[in-house]
Design a protein around this nucleic acid. Structure first.
Lengths: 331, 331
DNA sequence: CTGTTAGCGCCTTCAC
DNA sequence: GTGAAGGCGCTAACAG
């Protein structure tokens, strides 16, 4: 590997001048800068980051811990958002994938500390509570799409209640007046907030709550697993409650409800409105149009989390900030 | 930050002994090792990786460049596989996300070189040809799920032909004898190989090719975009060719075909068999059972690519290795 | 088995 | 503006 000294000899300057050029120090005569640049190119010199890190105070390295994040496609936007800001600010971003095992988390934290990472985003694949090792207290840390169980860490999470309100507003705007909300397991944080939001929207518009039917179709079992009754529930609710629109707790659920609607010879958007949270990759594109969906906040959460770490933007991001989720009419 | 010297003073040994303990050198008396370990714990010492890298010959850092990989859920298994091997061999794995912009790729390569990365896996989100910068020639590089356009790099790719053969074998084993294959755009490498494999399976079993109907239902447009005629094609093929099973080029296609089958009042697995390549996350779970799918090679490709880099396993992985794809009966 | 000496490649300090 | 001296935290090589 060619070093700064070899470049210096080749360029006919001292190695300190080369160092200055490499680090964009403006106090270098143009003539010398060009000589150095030429030498760097000719020798294909690459700065040794490890060596430079030994002398610098800050590593310029940030990290995002992805807790099985990447297995769900749209949450990747958290990383994309964080990366945008990191690159913009000229920081290195380490992506660390961890799974549920303690070993993988320990390993990640070990790396963070040994590489002298300056800030960490801990992100989960769905909005939930997570247990964060106290060791992360040693590094500025912010959670994204999750919130801490016991110890205190700042976090950005989706504003589920606002999402529920927005999606209902959107349906009402489209003229729907009798709405069924087939919710997730109501132990899930997202389900709780959305339910409040849906009800709020109805009240806000002065609509009778008799025209709103909410039930949980993802049901937690004693053994911790969950079952989905979305298909049967949708069929029953359509027959008995006769909604003019259905809000689905998640997209695969919307998918099943499409089958039900299909079965009944109804047309989505004409006979019945369907709305759904989340954007499950390519699925919606296959369905009929007139589905009402939400824009997801993952990208923005990633950006904000990174800005918080780099610039201490406590003005916009603080503990348990209820992140805003923006309603969007469907493609 | 506490250094090796402070630990040495605290433990009452020379700093070299501390270094030995940190690096698991067995030639340290147990009594001293324990003193050092105790001091490390008490001072919460963390080795400075940057400093150690300046003296070590090898960085022990490997990287995987993910070319928009993470936007497709199942391809994440490439990273998971690579990470498994890296961790097993005690190597650091850098995950670098790049997008289609040259800037993001340049940035990634710059990092690779400056951090003295020892090996690189370049992976794409679907099996395709990619243009690889010659600069990567400077580092041992292997492509996963893609192959190089002009310059020569080793690569691991799915054996699409074997996949086509396996999935057809599986259908025949289940008793289906008249099969329609609704393929992707045949300019796609996957489509070409699978078609050959499907035909091979028919021949191998001595079945008449009259009972096999293959057509491309994803069609490339002049402007480079693609359109899907899968829904209409499936309806027509069922009416005219009357297959007892349909092979779908990808899962979203299978989804559409489920609607078609549904419309016709047919039952999947009873009236008609449906088989599909790929495993699009949660979608298949929503469909009726009796779908025949394939196990994807992404995880294995990630593992093999990493082994190739770390141990030069040229015996199992070589240029354009036709990776084996394993048929699996569906859940 | 342990410690000393001499760097790694770079950045900081400070004199010129 | 530039360069020499010194040191970052660690490991290699060798002596004891």
């Amino acid at each position: 590997m060619v070093t700064i000294k070899q470049v210096a000899v080749h360029a006919g300057v001292s190695f300190k001048t080369v160092s200055r050029v490499v680090n964009n120090d403006p106090t270098v005569k143009n003539i010398n800068r060009e000589k150095v640049l030429k030498a760097i190119k000719e020798l294909d010199y690459r700065p040794n980051r490890a060596a430079s890190l030994t002398r610098r105070k800050n590593s310029n390295i940030y990290a995002i811990i992805a807790d099985e994040l990447l297995s769900v496609p749209y949450t990747f936007d958290i990383i994309r958002g964080a990366q945008e800001i990191a690159w913009q600010k000229n920081k290195e971003l380490l992506i660390l994938n961890v799974n549920e095992t303690q070993a993988s988390i320990d390993r990640a934290i070990k790396s963070l500390l040994e590489y002298r990472v300056e800030g960490v985003i801990y992100s989960a694949m769905y909005h939930r509570q997570v247990a964060i090792a106290d060791e992360l207290k040693k590094i500025p840390t912010i959670l994204a799409n999750c919130f801490p169980a016991s110890n205190n860490f700042p976090c950005v999470v989706p504003d589920e209640q606002q999402a529920g309100e927005d999606i209902t507003d959107a349906l009402i705007r489209k003229g729907y007046r009798r709405i069924a909300f087939l919710n997730l397991n109501e132990h899930i944080i997202a389900a709780k907030g959305r339910k409040l939001g849906v009800i709020n929207s109805f009240k806000k518009h002065g609509l009778p709550l008799d025209d709103l039917h909410i039930e949980s179709v993802i049901i937690g079992q004693d053994d911790g697993s969950e079952i989905s009754t979305s298909r049967e529930s949708a069929a029953r609710v359509i027959d008995e409650f006769k909604p003019d629109a259905i809000i689905c707790g998640q997209d695969p659920m919307a998918l099943e409800i499409y089958f039900v609607v299909h079965d009944k010879g109804m047309i989505v958007g004409k006979d019945i409105g369907i709305a759904s949270f989340d954007d499950w990759g390519s699925i919606p594109q296959l369905l009929q149009p007139n589905l009402t969906t939400m824009a997801l906040p993952h990208h923005a959460m990633g950006r904000w989390a990174m800005e918080y770490l780099i610039e201490q933007r406590t003005d916009i991001v603080h503990h348990s900030l209820p992140f805003k989720l923006i309603a969007r009419d469907s493609f």
